[in-house]
Design a protein around this nucleic acid. Structure first.
Lengths: 200, 200
DNA sequence: GTCTATACTCGGATAGAC
DNA sequence: GTCTATCCGAGTATAGAC
């Protein structure tokens, strides 16, 4: 971390600590230590713990948001979008396993902030999706489904096995490699279930 | 709460507050107020906040385990078991909303303890279910499905909307009452999806 | 067993020198 | 910009009277 500005060093250290400990578990002292500076500097650059957290969190969400937007607004058939979504979403989460638990924890402790960030980043995508599905249903190309349930189903089945990985690994007696295969299998399985539930 | 012993009053108050605020958001003062006693008494009976929480937590898990066991080992057709499961599971979680988030949080911090509690409480149920499904598949009454995926699907779709409630409420622009209806609707919807995915 | 009063600890925030 | 030293509130925990 030697060449970077203090501001960047702090941000990187904070990202690590917040990801590991969450907003409330994280200690300003630990962040300062990891960045190789002292507590006072944290406040000099970011004013408060809350502001620092917000900066870190926005950056993390911004990683996923454009990919979701890209898939939803892409010009391909709805079934392809669904396959693409489960595929990319599960892949992304597999490589950022800390994120879901992180979001869920913070959601309970600081709902306002998390909601605001999410709505800003992906709220519009949801509206686009809702309209698309409505049009397809009107044309009779899919069932007249409730998009809210469909979306919740798709996200649920993709996300939960990532969050509950430690528990499920033990319960199903799987090795790390086996669990990766299990997740890989789910990409198609989840997409198939969703598609089955909306196709005419 | 007048007639109960102080110990019970504390436990009930703590359950309410923990459900609402979670382990970290909960304040001992609030629990004391709700129980109609003072903070010192909390420590007299439960030594520390952590011990109090653990007591509440174990009680909650123990509440659900026998019901799951009961459903799985009951002598009714598999489709009825599935309907009964989604129904009771979603109802239970709606009344213990803090539980999933806590479990997930602890899974990251203290995987051993949580896994041990879960395996002890519901591990055997899973084996029973696995055997049942195998037999039915052999008899050709259901598809030869992978029980692990089916189980994960069922739990995912029931549990996620509880965890993500604050976010989904905002995103879907629903009132508390509307969200309850949304969850109520899911009981049948999830069961239908699971049944569709395994019926011949 | 139950209370009041208070001690103690942790951790975020700030003042002020350099 | 960076540091040391310090403040101060929040919240858990305990002492001791009744």
């Amino acid at each position: 971390m030697e060449d970077k500005t203090t501001e960047i060093k702090i941000l990187e250290a904070a990202t690590e600590v917040f990801q590991e400990k969450g907003m409330y578990g994280a200690r300003m002292q630990e962040i300062a230590d990891k960045a190789g500076i002292n507590k006072a500097l944290l406040h000099y650059y970011y004013r408060s713990k809350e502001k620092l957290f917000e900066t870190v969190f926005r950056a993390a969400v911004s990683l996923m948001a454009p990919r979701i937007k890209g898939i939803i607004s892409s010009d391909v058939p709805i079934f392809d979008k669904i396959r693409k979504f489960t595929d990319e979403y599960i892949s992304f989460l597999s490589n950022h396993t800390y994120l879901p638990a992180f979001v869920i924890n913070e959601l309970n402790k600081n709902p306002q902030l998390i909601q605001e960030i999410f709505l800003k980043e992906i709220g519009s995508s949801f509206q686009i999706l809702r309209d698309d599905v409505q049009k397809l249903a009107d044309k009779g190309e899919i069932k007249p489904v409730d998009i809210e349930h469909v979306l919740v189903n798709m996200i649920s089945m993709s996300l939960f096995p990532i969050i509950a990985k430690p528990l499920l690994k033990t319960m199903f007696n799987k090795s790390e490699k086996d669990y990766q295969i299990f997740l890989e299998t789910r990409k198609k399985l989840v997409a198939d279930m969703i598609i089955d539930s909306i196709k005419v």
